[in-house]
Amino acid sequence: MSNVMPLLSEIDRRLLDEYQRDFPLSERPFADIATELGVDEAKVLERFGYLKRLGALSRVGAVLRPNRVGASTLAALAVPAERLEEVAALVNAFPEVNHNYEREHAYNLWFVVTASDQDGVQRVLRRIAAATGLEPLDLPMLEDYFIDLGFSLRWI
């Protein structure tokens, strides 16, 4: 989990920075990228594999718009400090929960609940309240203002 930035070549940086959106939908996308970068297809595939093993690359894939598929909410619990690990484990045990983080606030445990529909989300929140004895804040997304153009490594 260390900073891998120093281990990246110029080609690696360009692969990470310039192909975050509109990835080619051609028969041989990696060959197209190779042509643009002036290397060969095998090199591009080899570098993507390296970047994935290194952990710098999560995936070459799709970022979905929230709430177009299924339902979800952001939930928070104000957990007494001495119960935090116990409650985090209770919450983690729900398969509908992902992204469970401790954050610095009176509401100190933040997680996302996803289900096939809104009723499913509400059911999980009620079960979490029952299991923990704590009342979750239910903060569903109302509007998404984030135009995801990717994470520019250039502004570093």
């Binding site: 989990m1 260390s2 900073n3 891998v4 930035m5 692969l15 990470l16 192909y19 975050q20 959106r21 509109d22 990835f23 290194l54 952990g55 710098a56 690359l57 999560s58 995936r59 070459v60 894939g61 799709a62 970022v63 979905l64 718009r65 177009r68 598929v69 995801d148 153009l149 990717g150 994470f151 490594l153 570093i156």
Partner: peptide, 17 residues
């Protein structure tokens, strides 16, 4: 249709410093 917001390289922030 906007179901896929972005299609391409997804980086890991933490690992990139």
């Amino acid at each position: 249709k906007g179901v896929i917001k972005r299609f391409g390289v997804v980086v890991r922030h933490h690992e990139l410093g």
